[in-house]
Amino acid sequence: MDGRLPALPGERPTMQDWADHCTTAFPEVRLKKYLEMRGADSGPWNRICALPAFWVGLLYDDDALDEAWELVRDFSMEERHALRDGVPKHGLKLPFRGGTVLDLARRALEISARGLARRANTNDNGMDERIFLGPLMEMAEAGTSAAERKLELFHGPWKGSVEPVYREFAY
């Protein structure tokens, strides 16, 4: 920091160095010039807009933002860690507060959908941004995540082979 590195004598770090350094961390939410939500980096074409629409519905409408905060405001640190650690293993079936993560996901989707409806941004056919939540709503209705569906295929029709994933889920 004081410019005393033998490899770079006299060089001092800059704000750009700090900005570059900040891009090396990969938390679930990363602050850039915007909030980068990293919960899902990619997915099939029919879900590409689902995650951004979900967050827009929650964060860009004051009523939805308040509702979302009410949903999670009393989560303890232990509960947040249990969710973070448990969801990758148990998915939507993870028990939580007398229900499951699926119950929590459904409530969050409902809040987001109301937020998108209030924004009233429509396409040429008069449909608002809720159309992008369709794939997430289908998963919530079925109670099965994309990962769980792939596991069902792996243990069922794919007979333990990973080869079909490259054909059926190429995007």
Rank of each mutant, 00 (worst) to 15 (best):
V72D: 06
E79M: 11
E28I: 12
L104H: 09
E70C: 11
D41M: 04
D85G: 01
D103H: 12
F75C: 09
V165E: 04
M137R: 12
A19L: 13
L35A: 12
T23V: 09
A25R: 09
H90R: 12
S161A: 14
N123A: 13
R38V: 04
L5H: 11
P9D: 08
W158M: 02
I48W: 00
H81C: 09
A7W: 07
R106G: 06
G3K: 02
G43Q: 02
A64T: 02
A140S: 14
L71Q: 12
V101W: 09
F154A: 02
L109R: 02
Y166F: 15
G86N: 04
R106L: 01
A68L: 07
R118E: 05
A7F: 06
A140N: 11
K150T: 07
P164Q: 08
A7S: 12
G126R: 08
T122S: 05
P95A: 13
N46V: 15
D2E: 07
E129G: 00
G10V: 05
A147L: 07
L59E: 03
E67A: 15
S145C: 11
G156C: 10
M77K: 15
L136Y: 01
E148Q: 09
H21Y: 15
H21P: 03
S112Q: 08
M77G: 14
L58V: 10
E67T: 07
M127D: 12
F132Y: 12
